[in-house]
Write a protein that binds this DNA or RNA. Structure first.
Lengths: 201, 201
DNA sequence: GTCGATGCATGACAGTTGTCATGTACCGCA
DNA sequence: TGCGGTACATGACAACTGTCATGCATCGAC
């Protein structure tokens, strides 16, 4: 019997996936969590075999949770599930000790197979996401450029960004220009959008 | 027996929700669709009692589908489900003839209750979304402002927007300024983000 | 018919942003 | 030690964006 923890902030999805998994005779959903914090607490308490984590959650996201769990509860294997897009997170997910990485576009049969595979010590990464991640490659941005672009993401003016990273206006503009050039955008906002799509910020 | 069509572009979610509903003794999931186009075709073919539609789908979204169905298949009642946020769509959903409107944060029990209620001729709108929609109110933007802001959304420069809506640069800037002022943003991008959060563009 | 309110349109001006030339510090390498 | 490459930092200049004053057309109220 494989003991599973399901974490997703959307109650309906969480219930539905938990119900789906519970239908399998060799699965038992032992707990549910609606946030990263809850997921960590529940995992430490319930010690499941597999933690099925949504990537986007309030508080710590799925990857943060996986990192904590692989450090504090190594016998619990993590699988991260994500909505469409976001191949850029794959690399950091693997670095965080995630054993399975799937988009929500896979079939329920595939999810069950992956849970079994991971529970028995294997790994599984969705081939399509893997291809996209390889195609997209690593972020071309330097750490500083990443910081600055991340702050520019929701429309903050340069001065505010400069203050937050303790830089002069000119320097911030320079980093933004570099990011814009590297990403091929027409301005910072397009660049931020592109970087976000690739999971680089 | 209530015959249900489930439409969601994410296979896993679709499967999971369908499975969840199928557990209910008085429900029968008669079909699934992965896009708005498929949903319309499947509904016309299968003539379900209830169409459960995801808001965000490739091609026609859940509201578009509901509009088509309420025109061409009025005996099929539509329920729209959405990820968190987006109260702004509620009004257009109701205008499109949607009978139920729920965030994906509700429990599975609630979903089942709403399906029964809608199938028997009732309506249900999530109280929290309704409150937010009332609080947020209608879009303060004029049609032109909405057009322009929508185009500014993903970072297009003014000239491109001007071309697309056949306006002078100055006029476009003026509309953007009006939108920025009305929405309380610091620049067009913040304004676009705010409008998007409210579902106004 | 006049009035005010509203939506739409334009151009001048000032402030912000993007581009560029330039400079410093650090690192690996011959 | 000297060299090239990279990340980081700055300021001048040009282009773009946001603000403002202004004008025109439509529509309902009086």
């Amino acid at each position: 019997m494989i003991r599973i923890l399901v974490a997703d902030d959307e109650h309906l999805i969480r219930d539905a996936i938990a119900g789906l998994l519970d239908l399998q005779e060799d699965f038992e959903v032992v707990g549910q969590a609606a946030s990263g914090t809850e997921a960590i607490a529940a995992a430490l308490r319930l010690r499941p075999d597999v933690a099925l984590l949504d990537l986007q959650m309030p508080g710590p996201d799925g990857i943060d949770v996986a990192r904590r769990l692989s450090a504090e509860l190594p016998e619990c294997r993590s699988i991260v599930v994500t909505s469409h897009g976001r191949p850029g997170y794959l690399k950091s997910a693997l670095a965080a000790g995630v054993r399975g990485f799937l988009p929500k576009t896979v079939s329920s049969r595939m999810l069950a197979d992956v849970v079994r595979k991971v529970a028995s010590g294997g790994r599984h990464v969705d081939p399509e996401l893997a291809a996209e991640a390889i195609g997209a490659g690593d972020s071309p941005l330097t750490p500083r450029e990443t910081d600055v672009l991340a702050l520019a993401r929701d429309g903050a003016p340069v001065d505010e960004i400069a203050q937050r990273v303790s830089l002069s206006r000119g320097t911030v503009r320079n980093y933004l220009a570099a990011a814009i050039a590297k990403l091929g955008g027409a301005n910072r906002h397009e660049a931020a959008r592109i970087a976000a799509e690739h999971g680089w910020i």
